[in-house]
Simulated scan of single mutants.
Amino acid sequence: MPKINGNEIRPGNVLEHNDGLWAAVKVDHVKPGKGGAFAQVELRNLRNGSKLNERFRSADKVERVRLEQKDMQFLYESDGMLTFMDTETFDQVELPAEILGDRRPFLQDGMTIVVEFHDTEALNATLPQKVTCTIEETEPVVKGQTAANSFKPALLDNGVRITVPPFVGQGEAIIVNTETMEYSERA
Rank of each mutant, 00 (worst) to 15 (best):
Q129I: 09
P32R: 08
T134P: 04
G20Y: 02
A147L: 14
L21Q: 00
K26V: 05
F151L: 13
T132I: 13
A147E: 12
A187K: 06
Q129A: 15
D109E: 15
D79I: 09
L156T: 00
D79P: 09
L127F: 11
L46R: 00
G6R: 02
M111E: 03
T132Y: 11
L52G: 01
L95G: 12
V41H: 01
A125F: 01
R44V: 03
S78Y: 08
F117G: 01
S58I: 11
P96W: 08
Y183Q: 05
A187F: 06
R57K: 13
N158Q: 08
S50R: 07
E77C: 08
G171K: 03
P2E: 05
K51Q: 11
I162F: 10
S150D: 15
P165N: 10
E94M: 12
T87D: 14
L127K: 04
L15M: 11
A173I: 07
P11E: 05
M85T: 08
E8M: 12
P165R: 10
A187D: 15
T83Y: 10
G6H: 06
P11G: 02
I174D: 00
L52A: 03
R103A: 11
E185H: 14
P140K: 10
K3T: 11
S58M: 12
T120L: 10
P32C: 06
R186I: 13
D79F: 12
T87G: 15
P2R: 13
Q108P: 02
G36P: 04
E136T: 12
D28K: 09
R66G: 08
F84Y: 08
I4F: 11
D86S: 12
A37P: 02
D91W: 03
D28M: 02
G20S: 07
T126E: 13
D102M: 15
E77I: 07
G35Y: 09
E137P: 01
D60M: 10
E68K: 14
P153S: 13
G12I: 03
V25L: 02
R161M: 09
Q145D: 13
V14N: 00
